[in-house]
C-alpha cells in the first residue's frame, strides 16, 4: 500500500505515464489527442509530473511552429513500475 504513488492517482497523469513508458517521446498535441483533454488541463498535469522529475521536457521549433516533446525519466519509469506492482499486489 505504501508503494502507491500519489502522483499517479489521477487518471490523466496515469495516461501520460502509460503512453510515455511505451514511446520514446510524445509531443503535446499527440498527448492531447490521446487523452482527450483541454490544453490547460493537460499542461497542469504535465507540470506536476515535471516538478516530480518523472518526465523531461524539450521545446523546439518544427516548421516554424513550437513543438514541445515529453520523455519519461529513469526516475519516472522506476516510480511507475513500482506503482503498477503495488496495484497488482493490492488486487491479489
Amino acid at each position: 500500500m505504501k508503494d502507491l504513488n500519489k502522483a499517479f492517482e489521477n487518471k490523466i497523469r496515469l495516461g501520460i505515464m502509460s503512453s510515455l513508458v511505451v514511446n520514446d517521446s510524445m509531443n503535446f498535441n499527440a498527448l492531447k489527442e490521446l487523452l482527450d483533454v483541454t490544453d490547460g488541463n493537460l499542461a497542469s498535469h504535465l507540470k506536476t509530473l515535471e516538478s516530480n522529475e518523472y518526465i523531461s521536457v524539450k521545446k523546439e521549433f518544427l516548421n516554424r511552429k513550437p513543438n514541445t516533446t515529453y520523455k519519461i525519466t529513469r526516475l519516472g519509469k522506476r516510480a511507475f513500475v513500482k506503482h503498477i506492482k503495488a496495484i497488482e499486489q493490492l488486487l491479489k
Binding site: K11, L14, G15, S18, S19, V21, V22, N23, M26, A30, L34, L35, I84
Partner: peptide
C-alpha cells in the same frame, strides 16, 4: 486505463 493508453499510444 494503463493498458488502453499503452495500446493506443
Amino acid at each position: 486505463e494503463i493498458r488502453e493508453m499503452m495500446d493506443k499510444s
